[in-house]
Amino acid sequence: MKKTIFLGTLTAVGLVAGAAAAGTLDDVKARGTLNCGVVTGLAGFGAPDANGQWQGFDVSVCRAVAAAVFGDPTAVEFIPTTGKTRFTALASGEIDMLARNTTWTFSRDVDLKFEFIGINYYDGQGFMVPASLGVSSAKELNGATVCIQTGTTTELNLADFFEENNLEYEPVPIETNAEAQQQYLAGACDVYTTDASGLAATRATFENPDDHIILPEIVSKEPLGPLVRHGDPEWGDVVRWTLNALIAAEELGVTSANVAELAEGTENPEVNRLLGSEGNLGEMLGLEADWAKNAIMANGNYGEIFEKNIGENTPIGLARGLNAQWTEGGLIYSPPFR
């Protein structure tokens, strides 16, 4: 009897493994919810609020995609992933997309077989130290103990930076941001290093943020963006153009406040194409005509999402900088909707 159950389970596992290869968009529609991989908790970028609702800059991308597909920004199942588990979760099909400060690198794109669908935050790796340490540059960190999140590009950049500058250091690998914070505050490491945006977000949650300074050196390029699996271009297009719709909406002046009004039809043909009152872009994607309108209504356009979650008026207080629209000297740029 036991043997039969065992063999039956084996066969079932085999069959399930064989069947997981249909289109992701169809799977998501059939399931009724979007499985979105997010960070385990990083203030401003992705963390549950007091009511247990996930909020944040990356989370908003998930909500926008869910709104584009279902017209309902709450039809998302958020799956927290660590730096180590995120790629396995995506590759195995446990999540449909990953929106979690993940750096776009060659090997992740080509070797790990993922498709980065765009960049929603241009970041770089920085260092945070207690002000009492009296350090004003990362080049003075010879011999320091450095807390790093393991399984990220930061540990490779860190090794490169210290080698390049001929400095010694002692790495302390840590699994999650929360543990890193704890060790850093207890003085078990002198320096905490991660993406500058993450440092700002972490510092904002400290009791006395002013006791800690972020050093001026930015030691790497960290283009962060959502990603999907290789091999399903249709699904990749849906996520890519949802992000582009948010970016284009800011450029075209479409906000969550006026999107309903503008969707009735405007003088600007690109706005009309974007919001579905002209052309059939939604149909081409396999979605409803008002997909972009729903996506924008979910959390607003790119600029609104930025200001609401991580902008200068939030505790995190990040300036737009590189992440301003290209028309304002930044790098955020959407291909045309045509």
């Binding site: 180590k84 790629f87 090997s107 399984g151 690998p173």
Partner: peptide, 16 residues
């Protein structure tokens, strides 16, 4: 950093 941390952790993560 035991073998699960190097081979099964960072190496696995960086190389996939």
């Amino acid at each position: 950093m035991d073998v699960t941390g190097t081979l099964g952790g960072i190496t696995q993560n960086q190389t996939g």
